[in-house]
Design a protein around this nucleic acid. Structure first.
Lengths: 104, 104
DNA sequence: AGTCTTTATCGCCAATTGACGATAAAGCCG
DNA sequence: CGGCTTTATCGTCAATTGGCGATAAAGACT
């Protein structure tokens, strides 16, 4: 058993201008459900999966879409663990986001 | 003549949950053109108007739409000044955004 | 008054988003 | 093996977004 899933990878899409990176991260955060997901993943430092579905008032497929958006923007990482998937915040992402904001 | 336009008003939409406020601010920032506008308005502390149109590779009507999005989310304020409109960053908004982010 | 400049809005269009149910894929457990 | 659980993907649909040109509105300037 691991204390923490998806520990090492770098998934933030770097091959973009700063404006594009910031816009991508911001737009991925630009939905209340996704804000709630990020908050949830930050509170429980360990990673969760279908618990997110239980917490949000949305269909499983919709939540899966939101998770995909967050993952593609670099906010979160997901690791398959048996039949379920374990998500967690990308550790560098909040700091990176703040950095880009300060660079405005 | 004023040293600074739109100085006093409070335009951030407060009547929302924190998640909704953060999502609104984030999604408004979630486009490269709007990031560029915010950066421009921050660099020149004084407010600009159609200069934004000159800087961006977009039609005037498109820029106007982006300005509207930013204004409705509370990022910027606009003040009519003769035939032109003077925009500037809402002074509290960056701080507020960071606060909401830290509250995640 | 008439013209010019500036900006917001309208109408249109293509593309994207957000939601859902249904289905598929992958792994567990009897 | 057969069923159960979990999650990703597909298809669909309505709504929103992002772009543009055209037009309207509001001042400025002869």
């Amino acid at each position: 058993m691991k204390a923490r899933c998806c520990p090492t990878e770098e998934v933030i899409p770097w091959a973009r201008s700063n404006d594009e990176q910031l816009a991508l991260l911001a737009s991925a955060l630009g939905h209340p459900a996704r804000v709630a997901i990020v908050r949830l993943l930050k509170k429980r430092e360990s990673c969760i999966c279908g618990e997110i579905v239980d917490v949000l008032p949305l269909a499983q497929s919709t939540v899966s879409q939101h998770l995909k958006v967050l993952k593609e923007a670099g906010w979160i990482q997901g690791e398959v663990d048996g039949p379920r998937t374990c998500y967690c915040l990308n550790p560098q992402v909040l700091e990176r986001f703040q950095l880009l904001l300060n660079g405005l």
